[in-house]
Design a protein around this nucleic acid. Structure first.
Length: 472
RNA sequence: GGCGGGGUAGCCAAGUGGUAAGGCACGGCUCUGCAAAAGCUGCAUUCGUCGGUUCGAUUCCGACCCUCGCCUCCA
């Protein structure tokens, strides 16, 4: 009966019980984009997944506070700011705005808060100061502040909660930045990076000198500032489990700001990555798509959302162009059904079908089995069409069905297809064709039909007369 | 090497110890002046391979094959 979520911390599906004693308010944090470029379709899988979590929580009656950070200071950003001789804010502002537009395009509900890392430097410095005071962090010879995994463990804390780690068997990564040679231990990570000449104007002052924050600290500082030291849900892509989320836990819990017995985050959820055309997305394979690449190919954000939402979030998902085409057909079927219901219902108000909503809730309760939900939705479409086709559906029935769909769609977030009214000249062509048909001048009628087609409109001749539809 | 996911029809993808949802594609039908559109309908004796447990396994166990991801700033 309860809502179950797979918690990476326990590696099991657990009943979702909010920290709020009243069981109503829920804090949700999702690691957002690093705004150094346009986000790609893989990034958006995670954000659409987060959107589903949020919408479903709200559907379940929770009052969600949804936070998504904007990482607007980081190595790649600094590099590009320098290359393009622009300012940090001008550079990141552009990609941030584009990112939010993309989210809208995908019909994701905007988070309540989208804090920028650069606006929480003071909070990060406070957190680092706490860690230094507790002896868990140290300043190295290069002036940077690092988090000591050893010291953290010495406090009885566990490092390696989301993933099993075996440092001895770990490969020594080549990715360790050269400026991090000063670390006491390879596993330690930077909280504060001392300023280097390449940083240019990108630096802040701190008690430990000029510099900039490390990667992980921003999420700890911003999430705890906005949601409190302990909150319910933290989401992100699977690649963030380690080191990013592991380090977030270490910093946040190492700072000792939680109430006794409380964790930093109660439920960690991770979305699996996307494959594109069966392969890992990469620019060299030509299967690397940003959202705008797909829009440019003529697909809509709605179609892309549908595809991204067709598989379970913890399964690796194979994204293909063919599936986008399929989404178009499937959505057209849904739209057609809803349009017919709307026509029949008129101004009648309906009541949602509790039985169907109950079934959908039951499948989504199982760790968001969205594929199961689609199955039910399409079964419902077929049943509804049968009734509609029989021709004896009442306005009240249609209104009820419509209300059911409207409720379901608060979770799925597909919205309606934007209906475009046919302009007068198109309507005139339609009338002319009807006249020609009546006069049995089929040659003229077909010519007019062709002309309508060339203007992007298709005629659907129904027993009740012709309907105009915008062709895809 | 360490750790963790997967392998279900042409493609995508759910699911269950009791005999395989759904979507796309494809075939048939209805409608139509013809079409189109739309709708209805059909479409896996079978769930990577081989063993085992069981009255019964795709579902549990073992081995193997294949595949994907993470292993220090990538969603």
């Amino acid at each position: 009966m309860g809502f179950k979520l797979f918690n990476t911390l326990t590696r099991t599906a657990q009943d979702f019980v909010p920290l709020d004693p009243a069981g109503r308010r829920v804090g949700l944090y999702c690691c957002g984009p690093t705004v150094h470029d346009f986000a790609h379709i893989g990034n958006f899988r995670t954000f659409v997944f987060t959107d589903l979590v949020r919408r479903y929580l709200e559907f379940r009656g929770y009052a969600v506070t949804h936070v998504m950070n904007i990482t607007d200071v980081e190595d790649k950003i600094i590099k590009r700011v320098r290359e393009q001789q622009t300012t940090l804010r001008a550079f990141t502002g552009k990609y941030e705005a584009e990112f939010l537009r993309d989210l809208d395009e995908l019909r994701c509900v905007r988070p309540h808060h989208t804090p920028r890392a650069t606006e929480y430097i003071a909070e990060m410095i406070d957190l680092i100061a706490r860690l230094l005071a507790r002896g868990i962090a140290y300043q190295a010879a290069d002036g940077s502040i690092y988090f000591s995994i050893d010291k953290y463990r010495g406090c009885g804390c566990c490092y390696g909660q989301l993933v099993k780690l075996n440092f001895d068997a770990m490969r020594v990564g080549e990715r360790v930045a050269s400026d991090e040679y000063a670390k006491e231990s390879l596993a330690d990570f930077a909280l504060w990076k001392a300023r280097v000449p390449e940083d240019g104007d990108v630096f802040w002052t701190s008690p430990w000198g000029e510099g900039r924050p490390g990667w992980h600290i921003e999420c700890s500082a911003m999430s705890m500032k906005i949601l409190g030291p302990s909150f319910d849900l933290h989401l992100g892509g699977e690649d963030l489990m380690f080191p990013h989320h592991e380090d977030e836990i270490a910093q946040s819990e190492g700072a000792g700001v939680q109430q006794p017995g409380q964790r930093f985050v109660k439920y960690w959820m991770h979305g699996a990555h996307l494959l594109v055309e069966g392969k890992k997305m990469s620019k060299s394979l030509g299967n690397f798509f940003t959202l705008r690449d797909l829009l440019a190919k003529g697909f809509t954000g709605r179609e892309i959302r549908f595809v991204l939402l067709s598989g379970h979030y913890r399964e690796q998902f194979n994204f293909t162009l063919e599936s986008l085409t399929g989404a178009r057909t499937a959505l057209a079927r849904l739209d057609e059904c809803v349009a017919k219901l709307r026509e029949l219902a008129g101004a009648t108000n309906g009541i949602a079908d509790a039985a169907l909503l109950g079934q959908i809730t039951a499948v989504l309760d199982e760790d968001l089995n969205v594929s199961g939900a689609w199955g039910l939705v399409f079964d419902w479409i077929r049943d509804t069409n049968r009734v509609l086709a029989a021709g004896n559906a009442t306005a009240a029935q249609a209104a009820n069905a419509l209300a059911t769909w409207t409720t379901l769609d608060t979770v799925l977030g597909l919205g309606g297809k934007s209906d475009t009214e046919a302009p007068p000249e198109i309507l005139a062509l339609l009338e002319a064709r009807q006249a020609a048909r009546k006069a049995k001048d089929f040659a003229l009628a077909d010519a007019l039909r062709g002309e309508l087609n060339s203007h992007g409109w298709v005629i659907e001749d129904t027993p009740k007369g012709p309907r105009l539809k915008r062709s895809a």
